[in-house]
């Protein structure tokens, strides 16, 4: 099965093309990791066209789309999720969502990524790669997990432990998506893992202009 994988949950957007089968696992054909800052919407579709060109394939050959659902900064995150949903809808192929943190690193680890506001998105994994805690958002000082840590090294000092630098990868997204790819009918709707409510407080009273 030819799968297009996308993720915009971190400042490095990922677009990849891979062959996947239940028996043989993942073969990545092309991948682009693009430092995107806040330009995910500008850069994602060119990155998708780029990996298609790299692999010498047309969009019509893609049989499923996998996307990271975050957690990640909301505006960029939505770009990847809505792109996956729209591509899959237009082509009539399944769209599968996974936790983006599942696609960072392998084995026993605690993944940390930037949640802004001096907090980190995190999740902890067992030796076989199974997620055992998270995803959640916390101040790194209050995480209270031993590591090893992988993900955004900017948090090393505040974690008091080294962080092995790692980004979301196509292979990681496909691995996390395997159960759903094996049975696309079971795929859950693409709902971002926001983990935070919108910042908005209803006004308590009308402020008079005169006093």
């Amino acid at each position: 099965m030819l799968v297009l994988a996308l993720d915009t949950a971190t400042p490095t957007l990922v677009a990849g093309l891979a062959r996947w089968s239940a028996g043989d696992g993942v073969t990545v054909l092309a991948e682009r990791a693009v430092p995107s800052g806040t330009k995910h919407a500008e850069l994602l579709t060119p990155a998708i066209e780029g990996v298609l060109a790299d692999a010498g394939l047309a969009i019509g050959a893609v049989e499923a789309v996998v996307t990271g659902l975050g957690p990640g900064p909301f505006t960029g995150l939505r770009v990847g999720v809505v792109t996956a949903a729209a591509l899959a809808d237009a082509r009539g192929i399944p769209a599968v969502g996974v936790c983006s943190l599942d696609a960072v690193g392998t084995g026993a680890r605690t993944v940390v990524t930037d949640a802004r506001r001096k907090e980190t998105y995190w999740a902890a994994y067992a030796t076989d790669g199974t997620r055992v805690e998270g995803p959640a958002v916390a101040r790194p000082e209050e995480l209270g997990l031993p590591g090893p840590f992988t993900g955004d090294p900017a948090f090393a000092e505040r974690l008091g432990a080294p962080v092995t630098p790692a980004d979301v990868t196509t292979a990681g997204l496909l691995r996390a998506a395997a159960p759903q790819l094996a049975d696309p009918g079971s795929a859950a709707p693409l709902v971002p893992l926001y983990l935070r409510r919108p910042d908005a407080v209803p006004p308590t009273s009308i402020k008079p202009v005169t006093r």
Partner: peptide, 20 residues
Amino acid sequence: LTGALLVGVAAAKAYALALG
């Protein structure tokens, strides 16, 4: 609104790409 606009822009780009 930037965040709102970007949902439509990303969706439209994806439909255009998928439909050629």
